[in-house]
């Protein structure tokens, strides 16, 4: 029995798909904003903070990296009311996704901070800069450059991870799709369309990250005679 694909009923719901996409973008950007802030704070606390701070930070990071996002969502959405904190589905989703991204990005930021030679920090301090100024002017840009690929990769995973928020009925694209699927019975078509939208979003964001990277690290390339350029020569001769 051959199955005939029919996208018409799904595409007829384009307005819902668009608003779902916008909801996903909003949920993602809110979570990314909060999550990266948490991550940076946790990394600084771990690297540069007092001993208790390092313990708190490490415990948070390990707890959230070693349990599924879906369970974190359930715990915050269904479990927190037990402690008298009641969140809407969207609030719980932002909260859980932010904490999840915070834990992952904390490890990424920490790797970046540790990759900056101690001598750079000493040079900044010796010039009279405060610790905060050393972070801001001396450490952040070179560290960001080192971690940029893994950080943007993590942001992509966060964008795609928001689809899980549909499990607690937070408004976003996958929930919109699930509703369309249940009303049209066009499951395969619906989820193919959703996949196409997510794939498009991912590629657009990768392109944006690349542009932002160009701007952030807009230093020109060293002119000539760098060691790296000469080292790669023999390879090219061979191929």
């Amino acid at each position: 029995m051959a199955y005939e694909m029919n996208f018409t009923p799904v595409l007829a719901r384009t307005p819902e798909l668009i608003s779902g996409t916008i909801d996903t973008l909003i949920l993602s950007s809110q979570s990314i904003g909060i999550g990266l802030t948490i991550g940076l704070a946790a990394a600084l606390l771990r690297v540069d903070g007092p001993k208790w701070g390092a313990v708190v930070s490490a415990t948070y990071v390990e707890a959230f990296r070693n349990t599924p996002l879906l369970v974190q969502l359930f715990l915050l959405f269904f479990g927190l009311p037990y402690m008298g904190i009641r969140l809407t589905a969207n609030e719980a989703a932002i909260f859980a996704i932010s904490l999840n991204l915070g834990a992952y990005s904390a490890e990424i930021f920490r790797a970046g901070l540790l990759a900056i030679p101690k001598t750079q920090i000493e040079a900044g301090l010796a010039l009279g800069l405060s610790r905060l100024q050393v972070m801001r002017y001396v450490v952040i840009i070179p560290a960001l450059r080192i971690i940029y690929p893994s950080l943007t990769g993590q942001l992509t995973l966060t964008l795609l991870g928001t689809s899980i928020a549909s499990a607690i009925s937070a408004t976003e694209l996958t929930l919109a799709g699930a509703k369309i699927e249940s009303q049209t019975f066009r499951s395969l078509e619906t989820f193919l369309v959703l996949a196409a939208i997510y794939i498009t979003m991912t590629f657009v964001f990768r392109f944006l990250y690349w542009l932002v990277g160009l701007w952030l690290f807009r230093r020109r390339v060293p002119k000539t005679g760098s060691a790296a350029a000469t080292l790669t020569l023999p390879r090219e001769v061979e191929s």
Partner: peptide, 21 residues
């Protein structure tokens, strides 16, 4: 695959492919 949410991959396999027979 890396640009598709895992949940969508799971739904495609579960709901989608069953329609293919």
């Amino acid at each position: 695959v890396q640009a598709t949410p895992l949940l969508i991959v799971v739904f495609l396999s579960y709901y989608g492919l069953s329609f293919l027979g």
